[in-house]
Structures are given as structure tokens and as C-alpha cells.
Design a protein around this nucleic acid. Structure first.
Length: 710
DNA sequence: ACGGCTTCGACT
DNA sequence: TAGTCGAAG
């Protein structure tokens, strides 16, 4: 007998899966002798034994908590095993955890739409799979349940004295009088139990899960029975669950908003929210938040599970608390370099593995100014188009930092006194972030074929982008082969012409070596430095008067102005290209990221020159850039304001002429050639009128739901 | 004067 | 758009 399928969106089956004390598990997998022991992962051993960032459940039983220091943990639980988080470049290196998280995702993503919510959490939309299962096998006919699913917890299911818990679960799972939605949830529980076992088998990690009809409830449920267990929220138990749930336990209400609800409205549990009308909540918290609150009080959440398996940004940061605060430009540069190196490595991995390119570089910092009451003023974040290559990222990050510092110190305080004892500022945290990451439509095998099929994507690729993109030496035997074979000859000419101006600028830039004055600082010499405009900014000529004095002296400034001139030229050249058919633009883009993959390189992964033909490293610095052809994408950071008429729709990534092709003219079939994990992402990207996600929680969602608001 | 570090989303 | 802010884990 077919079961009617309600049109309601609360007929969904959503799971939230949460890896148990994930970092600990990753370390335990590396060192199996740690299994079963009270243990914790710490970082930085220096100060009070390091900071705990993950604690095993055994250790929790001894009262060890996250947010303890290592010393404290030892006192609380003397036998605790403390494992240090890997360190690279003087900072915590979370890559092994990220990779382990990816392993899990690839298992979990099989049965339905999967959203990677954090390094150790995912949401799954299992609605389709559950419906299919229910259609094929009505739950009341089910008999052989896996042990794992019988260990589920079902909210609201009373365990009577002396009754066999597993038997109760079994009965619940195949209750014939259950509503359709609960039957779907039962199927969800089966699927999730299966997935969790698969995760364990394939990755050795245990996880906990919540199964409910929306994300909010699934998330709540997954935390209720840990570790290595799962919890189902039947529809009938939602009201009771929320009624007594402390308001601060709800996602999004753990911070100020939750506090405000408590102090201003006297709301202590989610149930307490029920007495307020939607209008009242809107009036107090705004239209969106008000509606959202009204809904969650009723267990309503319309958030979709986004099909996203990959992070939207990569960041690398470090704090320098208290006495460690950075007081010199040289030390800032040192750490920026480390952070940028890591960032570059991760960008490169992303490119290799996922064929994605990031378009924006952002620098964040925290700073104080001594002797100023205003000293907690925030250091402004700055961003610019991202150019690939370690040294470029480092260079741009430093420029962004200086731009931020200029703003931070105030307009009139242009000159920085960088003497070690006299600096009046300190930096307490630094981070660099790469965002606006979009897939390369590399599916372009279709397009590649059109040009003769000499494209190879990805290549074998331990090659780093640095090697490949700019740092190739023209004097090396293969240097002259830069683009031939990759680009039709007439197109090459166009590119070369277009690049000439830039190239000249870069030659100037590199000959003067903007870093030489800074590298001197690293040796401990005192120096002074001017503050300059961020990359991509064109207001350099309108720099404040005091700054202008430095124009002549500062290599950085010179190189920047040179670049700007080059930009002007490039802009006009770019226009010529713009008018062409989209395939040319497309190609432009493709070439930016790919063509040089075939070049031989003279620099190894760490940026150390290993060329034998170029003499001493210092000499080669100015040498090898002289004749190089720098690819458009590498320079296009100056193009932040160039036209993007090629975009046919709103919401497309902007700021790069290289990316402006007509999406209408892309053969949709190329999507199939993308790595499966980014296909969805790319499809969404192509979707013409995809609404920006302005009102995620709020009135726009509200109409989607049914309940009467009276 | 610290829990570090990372990511995401909303708002303006 | 760029930049700020809040939140979570």
C-alpha cells in the first residue's frame, strides 16, 4: 500500500553527523597505543603546558575540560596523555585534521546531499534515500536490523523498567501505526547507522549523529548522546524537547542574542519564546531575526542542506598574545611570510585536488597602540585580488598590512617609527585568508579538444604553482616554450602584447627588490618605512603629503606606481579582448591557471632557487624576471576595477577580466568532467538567477511553512 | 593579558 | 564591494 507523500517540508530527513573529539581520534589513529586512554590534543607547550583543543571522552570522565591548560589537565588527571598538534612554520598545522575530515566526508556524501559544516561536522539530506527505502520496504516489514541501529536513542521513547532497550527501539522502528514522517525518520536512522559503521570501517573514526526533520533539530540531537551514538527526534517529541531546552543551547543563541533574550525578555528556555508574537519578536530583534526566533520556538527551520563538500575559504593565522606582540615591521613580515607560505600550500592543494582558484586575499590583524585610550581600536581588514605564488601573496599581504597599519595609526601618523624600543604599536594577531574560491571550468576538455587536445589538467603535480607560474626562467632551456603548443599562435601574440607593460613594471619591481630593505630589517637593523596603498588600489597618487616624501626613496612605492601605469595599458589591451567571443575569454582564463604547468621550473617548493644556469640567487632575482612572460591572471590583481561586462548575470565573481566569459556559452556538459565533489557547486554557480542568500532565517522562509500564526 | 585557530553568514 | 561583526566549534 503506497504511502502518501506529504508536500510539507517537515517531511524531510536530515542528519547531523559529528566526529567525536575529532583531533584526539586523528592522533589516536596515528598512535594506536593512545586508544582508550585519557588523552588530549594541545598546542604550544610553552605557556602553562599548552592549550587543550580536544579532549578524549576518557579524559572528560576525569573532569578534564577543553579550555584547560596542559598543566591543569595534568593536575586533574595525572595519567593523561597529551599530544601536541603538529607545528609547521612556527604555527599550528591543522592539515592532518582537515584531510581526515575529508576522508569522512567522502564516505558520508554517498547517500544524499552533504554539507561540510566544519572540520568535523556534516549535515546530510537523506530525504530521497529514506523515501526510496520506505517505498521498497515498509518499515513494518523490516526484520533484520543491524546492531548499530538498535543502539539508537529515540527521544520521547520511554524505557520501561527492566525492558530491553534494543527491543524497544526495534519496536519503534517498525511501528505500523507511525506517521509517515516518523517512518521516514526510522529509515533515516537505518541509513545513518549504516553510514556511521562505514565511516568506522573506512577511517577508524567514530561519530555521533542526530536524525530529525530539519537541521536545527538534527544538530541538537547529535549532541545528546555521545560518543559513537545516534539520536532520533520523532515529530511528537519536538515540543517537549524544546520546551525545557535552555535558550543558550540553541545554535546561534549561544552568544549575545541568547543573552539578550534572557535579560531583556526573560526567556530562559526555547519554550519560553512561544508566548511572544512574531510581531513582538520582530519589533525587538528585527524582521529577520524575529521571524527566525518565532519559527525555531516551534521547531521550524527551513534551512537547506547545501551541497558543499569543500571549504569556501582558506585562512592561516596566529596570535601573539601579551608580551609576544609584534613590535616591528620586520617581525610582522616574518610571520606574514610564514602564514602566506601555508596559505599558498593550501591553495595549491585545492587547485590540484579540486581544480579551484581563489580570487581574494584578505589580511586581518589585531593591534594596540600604546598610551592611547583608543587603543582597542580595531585594525581594519584589507583585501585585494589574489595573485598565485608564494612571493606574490607574501608581497601583497605585507602591502595590505601596511595599508591597514596606516589606517590604524591614523591619517597623520604616516611615518612609522620602527625602532624596536620606540614603536608605539603592537600586533597581537595576524591572519591571511583566501576567499571567493571558484572552480576552474576545466571540464574544458571539450574546449581543449577544440584546440587540438594538448591540455592536460592537474598534471602529476608535486609542482607548486610558484614554480610554474611566474618563476619560470626564460633563459632556461624550456623557458621559451612557455606557451607554445598551448595557445594558438595568434592568440599568443595578443597576450604577449598585452603583457608587455606589466612585464616592464615587474622587471623594475624585481630589480629594485622591494624586499631588500625589509630583509635588512630582519637582520635587526633599524629602519623606517613608508606606508603605501594596498595592491589594486589606484589612489597612490593622492597619497597624503607626508607620505609623498617617501615616493622617491621607497622601492615599494616606485614599483607600485610602475605597476599602476602598466595597469592603464593593460586595461585598454583587455578591452580589445573583451569584445571577442567568449571562448577566447574562457581560454584566457584557462591559460592563466594552466598553461605554465608544462614549464620547467627553477625554484623548488620552498622558493629556493635550484637553477644551475642562473648563478647566485641574488643575481637571478633580477635576472629571471626580465624577459619572462607573466600571465594575465598573475597580473590581473590590478584589474579590480576593470570592466566585467562579460558577466551575463548578477552575482558572478567579479574583479577579474580573466574570468569574464559568458556563462550562457559554456557547454553544460563540461560539468560532468569536473571532479564529482564540486559539480554541484559549479551547477549552482551557473544557475542564472540564483538569489543571493540575503534572508536566510527570516520572513522569506516563513511563507514556506504552514503553521498558522495567529 | 590570551583558549588558539578557522570558517561562515548577515549586515551595511 | 569591502569591511565589520557575531557565532560556533
Amino acid at each position: 500500500m503506497p504511502v502518501a507523500k506529504p508536500e510539507r517540508c517537515d517531511g524531510r530527513v536530515i542528519a547531523h553527523v559529528d566526529l567525536d573529539c575529532f583531533y584526539v581520534q586523528v592522533e589516536q589513529r596515528k598512535q594506536p597505543n593512545l586508544r582508550g586512554l585519557p588523552s588530549a590534543v594541545i598546542q604550544y607547550n610553552s605557556y602553562k603546558g599548552g592549550a587543550l583543543i580536544a579532549v578524549s571522552y576518557e579524559a572528560r570522565n576525569f573532569g578534564v575540560k577543553r579550555s584547560m591548560r596542559g598543566d591543569e589537565a595534568k593536575e586533574t588527571c595525572p595519567q593523561i596523555q597529551l599530544v601536541q598538534v603538529p607545528v609547521a612554520r612556527g604555527k599550528a598545522d591543522l592539515n592532518s585534521y582537515r584531510n581526515a575530515g575529508s576522508e569522512v566526508v567522502s564516505v558520508l556524501a554517498q547517500k544524499g546531499r552533504c554539507e561540510r559544516a566544519s572540520i568535523d561536522e556534516v549535515y546530510l539530506d537523506l530525504t530521497d534515500a529514506a523515501e526510496t527505502m520506505l517505498m521498497e520496504t515498509p518499515t513494518e516489514n523490516m526484520q533484520d536490523f543491524e546492531e548499530e541501529v538498535l543502539k539508537s536513542h529515540v527521544l520521547g521513547l520511554e524505557s520501561k523498567d527492566g525492558s530491553d532497550a534494543k527491543e524497544e527501539i526495534r519496536k519503534w522502528l517498525c511501528r505500523s501505526d507511525a506517521g509517515y514522517q516518523d517512518k521516514l525518520l526510522a529509515c533515516g536512522a537505518l541509513i545513518v547507522a549504516d553510514l556511521r559503521m562505514q565511516v568506522l570501517n573506512e577511517t577508524e573514526f567514530t561519530c555521533s549523529a542526530g536524525i530529525a526533520h530539519n537541521k536545527m533539530l538534527a544538530k541538537l540531537a547529535s549532541a545528546m548522546n555521545k560518543p559513537a551514538q545516534q539520536t532520533v527526534v520523532p515529530h511528537s517529541s519536538v515540543e517537549g524537547l524544546l520546551e525545557s531546552l535552555p535558550i543558550k543551547k540553541m545554535k546561534q543563541l549561544g552568544g549575545k542574542l541568547g543573552s539578550s533574550l534572557q535579560s531583556d525578555l526573560g526567556v530562559n528556555t526555547v519554550g519560553d519564546l512561544l508566548q511572544f508574537s512574531e510581531e513582538r519578536l520582530q519589533q525587538r530583534y528585527g524582521i529577520n531575526t524575529g521571524s527566525w526566533l518565532w519559527n525555531i520556538a516551534r521547531g521550524i527551520s527551513g534551512e537547506e542542506v547545501e551541497g558543499r563538500l569543500l571549504p569556501k575559504s582558506h585562512g592561516s593565522g596566529k596570535t601573539f598574545p601579551g608580551p609576544q606582540a609584534l613590535k616591528t615591521l620586520a617581525s610582522v613580515q616574518h610571520w606574514l611570510n610564514q602564514l602566506c607560505e601555508e596559505l599558498n600550500e593550501r591553495l595549491h592543494t585545492d587547485l590540484d585536488q579540486n581544480k579551484r582558484i581563489a580570487h581574494t586575499l584578505t589580511l586581518h590583524a589585531r593591534a594596540y597602540k600604546t598610551g592611547v585610550s583608543d587603543s582597542h581600536r580595531k585594525f581594519p581588514s584589507k583585501s585585494c585580488p589574489l595573485r598565485y605564488g608564494t612571493r606574490k601573496i607574501q608581497e601583497d599581504a605585507l602591502i595590505l598590512f601596511q595599508a591597514g597599519l596606516r589606517d590604524f595609526l591614523g591619517f597623520y601618523n604616516c611615518k612609522i617609527n620602527n625602532g624596536i624600543e620606540h614603536s608605539n604599536w603592537g600586533i597581537t594577531s595576524l591572519s591571511v585568508t583566501a576567499s571567493k574560491i571558484v572552480p576552474i571550468p576545466s571540464g574544458t576538455h571539450s574546449i581543449a579538444k577544440y584546440f587540438g587536445g594538448r591540455f592536460q589538467f592537474g598534471s602529476s603535480s608535486n609542482q607548486s604553482l610558484d614554480n610554474v607560474i611566474v618563476e619560470a626562467a626564460p633563459s632556461s632551456p624550456s623557458g621559451s616554450e612557455n606557451c607554445s603548443g598551448l595557445i594558438p599562435y595568434d592568440m599568443q601574440l595578443e597576450y604577449l602584447e598585452e603583457d608587455t607593460g606589466i612585464e616592464h613594471a615587474r622587471a623594475c619591481l624585481d630589480q629594485q627588490d622591494p624586499f631588500c630593505n625589509l630583509s635588512r630589517k630582519v637582520d635587526g637593523l633599524t629602519e623606517e618605512s613608508s606606508i603605501i596603498s594596498p595592491p589594486g588600489s589606484e589612489d597612490i597618487m593622492t597619497e597624503s603629503e607626508p607620505c609623498r616624501d617617501f615616493l622617491a626613496k621607497e622601492p615599494m612605492l616606485v614599483s607600485n606606481t610602475s605597476r599602476l601605469k602598466a595597469v592603464e595599458k593593460k586595461k585598454t589591451a583587455g578591452k580589445k579582448l573583451q569584445g571577442n567571443c567568449s571562448i577566447v575569454n574562457f581560454f584566457n582564463n584557462y591559460r592563466n591557471s594552466q598553461s605554465s604547468l608544462e614549464q620547467k621550473n627553477v625554484i623548488n617548493v620552498h622558493g629556493v632557487k635550484i637553477s644551475s644556469s642562473l648563478g647566485s640567487p641574488s643575481a637571478s632575482d633580477s635576472n629571471f624576471t626580465c624577459n619572462q612572460v607573466e600571465l594575465p591572471a598573475e597580473n590581473s590583481h590590478e584589474e579590480i576595477d576593470t570592466n566585467n561586462s562579460g558577466y551575463s548575470r548578477a552575482n558572478m565573481p567579479q574583479g577579474r577580466q580573466a574570468w569574464s566569459y559568458n556563462i550562457d556559452e559554456i557547454d553544460p556538459s563540461i560539468i560532468d568532467e569536473l571532479p564529482p565533489e564540486i559539480q554541484d557547486e559549479f551547477r549552482a554557480w551557473l544557475r542564472p538567477y540564483k538569489r543571493t542568500n540575503v534572508v536566510k532565517r527570516g520572513s522569506s522562509i516563513t511563507h514556506y511553512f504552514l503553521p498558522d500564526k495567529k
